[in-house]
Simulated assay, not measured.
Amino acid sequence: MSNSKPVVTPTNPQFKLSIDQCPSTDVERAYMNSIPYANIVGSLMYAMVCTRPDIAYAVSLVSRYMANPGKAHWQALKWILRYINGSLNRVLIYGGALGEDSKAVIEGYVDSDYAGCMDSRKSISGYVFTMFGTAISWKATLQKVVALSTTEAEYIALTEAVKEALWLEGFAKELKLQGRGITVKCDSQSAIHLSRNSAYHERTKHIDVRLHFVRGVIERGEVQVLKVSTEDNAADMITKTLPSCKFFHCMQLIKLHEES
Rank of each mutant, 00 (worst) to 15 (best):
M1W: 04
N3S: 09
K5H: 12
Q14P: 00
K16L: 10
T25Y: 03
M32N: 09
I35T: 12
Y37F: 10
I40L: 11
V41M: 03
S43L: 12
L44E: 00
V49F: 06
T51A: 02
R52K: 12
R52G: 10
R52H: 11
A56K: 01
A56H: 06
Y57H: 09
L61S: 12
Y65L: 05
A67G: 03
G70I: 05
G70F: 07
A72F: 05
I80T: 11
L88A: 09
L88I: 08
V91M: 01
G95N: 02
G99D: 03
V105D: 08
E107Q: 06
D113L: 10
D113G: 13
Y114V: 00
A115T: 07
A115L: 05
F129G: 02
F132G: 02
W138H: 02
A140H: 00
Q143A: 05
V145A: 07
A147Q: 07
S149I: 10
T150C: 09
A153N: 02
Y155Q: 09
V162S: 04
L166H: 11
L168V: 00
E174F: 05
L175P: 02
I182S: 07
K185V: 01
C186R: 07
S188N: 14
R196N: 10
A199T: 12
A199H: 10
K205E: 13
L211M: 05
L211D: 03
R215F: 08
R215I: 10
R220I: 13
E222Q: 07
Q224L: 11
L226I: 12
L226A: 13
S229C: 01
A234D: 08
A235K: 00
M237P: 00
L242A: 06
S244L: 12
F248T: 13
H249S: 01
H249K: 04
M251W: 10
M251L: 15
Q252D: 09
K255Y: 04
